[in-house]
Design a protein around this nucleic acid. Sequence first.
DNA 1: ATGGCGGCTCGCAGCCGA
Length: 255
Amino acid sequence: MKIATWNVNSLKVRLPHLQEWLAAGGPDVLCLQETKTEDGKFCVPEIEASGYRCCYSGQKTYNGVAILSREPAADVQIGIPGYDDPQRRVIAATFAGVRVVCVYIPNGESVTSEKYKYKLAWLEKLTAWIETQLRTYPKLALLGDYNIAPDDRDVYDPKAWEGQVLCSEPERQAFQRLIGLGLVDSFRMFEQPEKSYTWWDYRMNMFKRKLGMRIDHILLSTELAPSCRSCVIDKDMRAKERPSDHAPVTAELAL
DNA sequence: ATGGCGGCTCGCAGCCGA
């Protein structure tokens, strides 16, 4: 079973890219972020024509998450239970006994911003919920746009970014608290190329200059991690015409 | 040097992302 995550930065604009990927043998389960699409306008016919089902939680203009899958989803959960967040950032469902949690973690804007406080508070809510989810679902995958570069090697210029949003210690500690629940960064289970990133700023030719950050992740529970055979970033998607600024990440599970 | 690109909207300028 292949599971993947991709921040599409508008599903409407990226639908052709998505359809091409799915037609060429896409993952079995695909978590999407920043769909920027209201539920009533979700492109269900196009997804189904590609041979996938979907569940989604979206809103106009901002945020929005979805899970596409070849098999039907079970036990779909929208949002973090007990957390009344108007921003559509979480959807979870179960596939073949694997709990798949799709997250779009807040960006935070800058470490002095109110949005940064929201990001850290949001991460605490997520962590508490994932802790309980792991008890219910020992086989769990937490996929999405984390907006956190967990390590200096995940940043093109760690000196310049030191202490900045995406790289600050509180954010990295929050990431490590998730790891501490019993999760593994699947990407780092394997030898990877130097300068592996998942996001490159549209500006300043950052992609061509190979200057990016690794902020999209697939974390696997300790029970699920041993079945992981690979984890790769699909950089080609970022090289296409009119790309998302994020590339997809795919993990292959021997299930 | 806080820009830059690209997406969005009760659009034609301003917000937001990261």
